[in-house]
Amino acid sequence: MQPSALAPAAVARASTPAPSSSSSPRRGRGRRRAARRAGLGALGIVLFVGVWQLVPTAGLLDGRYFPPPTAVLPRLATDLGDLEFWRNIRRTMSTWAIGLVVATSAATVLATVIGLVPFLRSATHTTVEFLRPIPSVALIPLCVLVFGIQPQAALVIIVFASFWQVFVQVLYGVADVDSVARDTARSFGLGRWSRVRHLVLPTALPYLMTGVRLAAAVALILAITAEMFIGNPGLGRALIFAQSAGDYPQVYALVIATGLLGLGVNLVFRLVERRALSWHQSVRGEEVP
């Protein structure tokens, strides 16, 4: 595993300005370019919806099982006015949030401790490398047996999957502490705790943010997967119910809803990452030509 190949790349992706952030003072040319991009992007979505409409209309796929947007989008609008839909979103998002918080805090604490103690780092290396690639969905049957169809079953899977994302990133981050800075801190007589507070955590923060962003996406995927296949209430279960009822416009509406949810999570975490690392980006900007 090459840590450095993943981590900086992920940080770098976050640092590329999103098309929407044209608030910085730019010249008219840049603004025109941004407008062009937004226009083309909107056109792309319109084209996609157009093709989607044509496929069932032209009879390429059966309209009963592949409903056109004229059936799906009104359905989504109806859902948006339905309280049960929002309750399902709340259920999904609260499982997601609890799982993400538990996984992130456990992973951050464990990875910081393990990363700072060389003995622990080498003692846990093989165990981590063996546990990490285990596909979390393999645990679904076990969780169903142990917890039944309760939210705990979903939580175990979410925590297991998102834990490793954060853990590995923080481990790299802690290992990335500059040795000169560490020696300096030590010779200035900083205690163990203040070294962690002022040196290790700031160094690991970009890695932590990358890990949390990845973990948030993974946790959402698994929260919905668990609802689909374990059957604890939420968007995923509503989707399975709609499918077994043969209500395909509703299935597609829910798929779009989950996509929007995922998009929202990605955007929010990218924003948080850029906020939290504004100091870091400026430092990078000076160092990297």
Binding site: G41, Y65, T225, M228, V251, V265
Partner: peptide, 28 residues
């Protein structure tokens, strides 16, 4: 221009949790 055209769409498609596609693809 192709990139500009497809970027928002791809961001959305990527954000769909893949397992929700199973019921859709299974029936097709």
């Amino acid at each position: 221009w192709l990139g500009d055209l497809l970027e928002p769409l791809l961001e959305f498609l990527r954000a769909i949790p893949p397992p929700v596609l199973i019921p859709i693809v299974a029936v097709l």
